[in-house]
Amino acid sequence: MLLEARGVHKAYGHVQVLHGVDFEAEAGKVTALIGDNGAGKSTLVKILSGALAPDAGELSLHDRRVRLTSPEHARSLGVETVYQDLALAPELGPAENVFAGRELLRPGLLGRLGVLDKKTMRARAQEAFTSMGTDVKDLDAAVAALSGGQRQSVAICRAVMWAKDLVFLDEPTAALGVRQTGKVLELVRRVADSGVGVVLISHNMTEVLEVADTVQVLRLGRRVAKLPASGTTVADLVGAMTGALDTPVTDARDDDRTDDRADERAAR
């Protein structure tokens, strides 16, 4: 297993946000993470990407236990994250953004003086944009001048270029129209097909079923379902999300699940 989390707990002050969540992501697969607003998706992703420390729970990458101390730490292990707000520098160009904080320097003395190798960075960014089939054409325009879909593409390409193993995408299509959503989903699929694991957070069920291999559902800080995308319907997902329908977790750890659900019922 590429990424495995067991019993992740997290509270903000007195508010318990995650109650022992399990989560898995596989290499070369798109794993969707869905759930209603406030279910704890972003919190879980922050924990899995090193931005937030869990109160309890364990994490393993490539079947080896890790304690992520920072996003930089996660990145050094090949895990990249595209946050909901993208975090691009609007005044700078796509290539500059892709290489932000990881600039290439010229060889030799100039490099030791800190001189950038703009040509190579540009060429590599161009190559990434083309090979991932994005429509980012103008490397000279500032990111502020790009369309929403192009900006999203830049952010995803940046993550994918550096992610050896796993990319988290927090609602990459939330602000996009139909056409650009399609482009981004194609990109997501291509990334997974290249062997990288992708975790996709989304509120759009049809989109999720279209692009994901597995869907994991979070409700009130618990994972209530893990379903293969094929054969699952939007109604199943909505049912799991809202609790109308209790779908069993198709996972080895069914037992503690049932306990959790009993707790939940008792709490009501």
């Binding site: 993208l86 520098a89 056409r179």
Partner: peptide
């Protein structure tokens, strides 16, 4: 950061065409 996250002009049809950005 807010500007980066501002809702982009999502529905403009020309964006899919790529060189819709004038400076390109």
């Amino acid at each position: 950061a807010a500007a980066g996250a501002a809702p982009p002009p999502a529905q403009t049809p020309r964006t899919g065409a790529g060189p819709g950005v004038p400076s390109s």
